[in-house]
């Protein structure tokens, strides 16, 4: 029934999925074209420049000015370090909390309470304590990124199907086998959800701190360009950071697709399901 309920649809003479993604790209290109036309003929050049001018500004000064390149590299470095720290500490704390019902019931509320704090109010404090350099930005990214990992690791460790637990036991598996073959794969989807959220939040923390510190790094240049009404390099710089963000997000997604057990091949129902293993 399900097979004939969901027939392959044909839209605009092509399979549905292709029609959808073509339309999506058409909309994005149309938006860029609109910006180009508006920026070239109508806009006040102090606020908006056409796409071509932004691309020009990307080559010069964004990519050619060593100081900007250095600032961008530092931001990438800070995100990477803060993210790595979030994963290591988040997973360690999450596993310690998730290991028993008692520990979870005791400590999860504390974690959730801390998670609910609007961290942005602490930003001046971080910079005050850690100074204007990379340390404060990394620390601020880390405190943003760690919480989704903890919460999702804890969530992934609960709700283990007791049947799977008994299956391992009945097949003579040890405690390590339980961890390796039941708990870890069971936790994987939630863990990757945590990794994705954590990446977005780590970047948020680092970028916030970068923008806050206007005496150096990216914050210096964005302020410089915004105050001098020089939008082309500002857009180019922001666009580059957005691309870096997209790249980081894609890395997490690729890792997720590669490493999630059972998600590599699309699940097949029906009689031949076993052969897709």
């Amino acid at each position: 029934m399900s097979m004939i309920d969901a027939p392959r649809e044909i839209i605009m003479g092509m399979p549905r999925a292709r029609a959808v993604s073509l339309t999506r790209w058409a909309i994005i290109l149309a938006a860029a074209a609109a910006l180009e036309i508006y920026g070239r003929f109508f806009a006040d050049p102090a606020f908006i420049r056409p796409v071509s001018a932004i691309v020009g500004a990307w080559f010069n000064p964004v990519m050619s000015d060593e100081r900007i390149f250095w600032a961008l590299s530092m931001a990438v470095f800070e995100i990477a370090v803060a993210y790595a720290l979030s994963i290591v500490f988040g997973a360690a704390i999450g596993i310690s909390i998730g290991v028993s019902n008692f520990a979870r019931a005791s400590f999860l509320p504390i974690v959730l309470l801390l998670y609910a704090i609007p961290q942005v109010t602490l930003m001046p404090l971080f910079i005050l304590i850690f100074g204007l350099g990379a340390a404060g930005k990394i620390a601020f990214g880390f405190t943003h990124g760690i919480f989704p990992i903890i919460v999702n690791v804890v969530a992934g460790m609960r709700d283990i199907n007791p049947l799977h637990r008994s299956a391992i036991a009945s097949m003579g598996g040890a405690r390590a086998d339980l961890l390796r073959h039941v708990i870890a794969p069971n936790m994987a989807p939630a863990f990757f959800t945590g990794l994705r959220l954590s990446m977005t939040l780590t970047m948020l923390g680092v970028i916030l701190a970068e923008l806050y510190v206007s005496t150096g790094g990216i914050g210096y240049f964005t302020r410089l360009y915004a105050e001098n009404f020089n939008p082309a390099p500002l857009f180019a710089l922001i666009g580059t950071l957005a691309l870096i963000a997209v790249l980081f997000n894609s890395l997490v997604r690729v890792a997720e697709r590669r490493l999630t057990p059972g998600a590599r091949a699309p699940a097949k129902l029906g009689l031949s399901g076993a052969k897709s293993k």
Binding site: I11, R24, R196, T200, M203, L208, L211, L241, A242, V246
Partner: peptide, 27 residues
């Protein structure tokens, strides 16, 4: 159809820290 076209655009933008664009708002 439009859900499938737009949902990934909105969700994708939301994974980028919108804070990046803050200087543009100031501008």
């Amino acid at each position: 159809f439009w859900t499938e076209v737009f949902e990934p655009i909105i969700a994708g933008l939301f994974t980028i820290p919108i804070t990046l664009f803050f200087p543009m708002f100031i501008l």
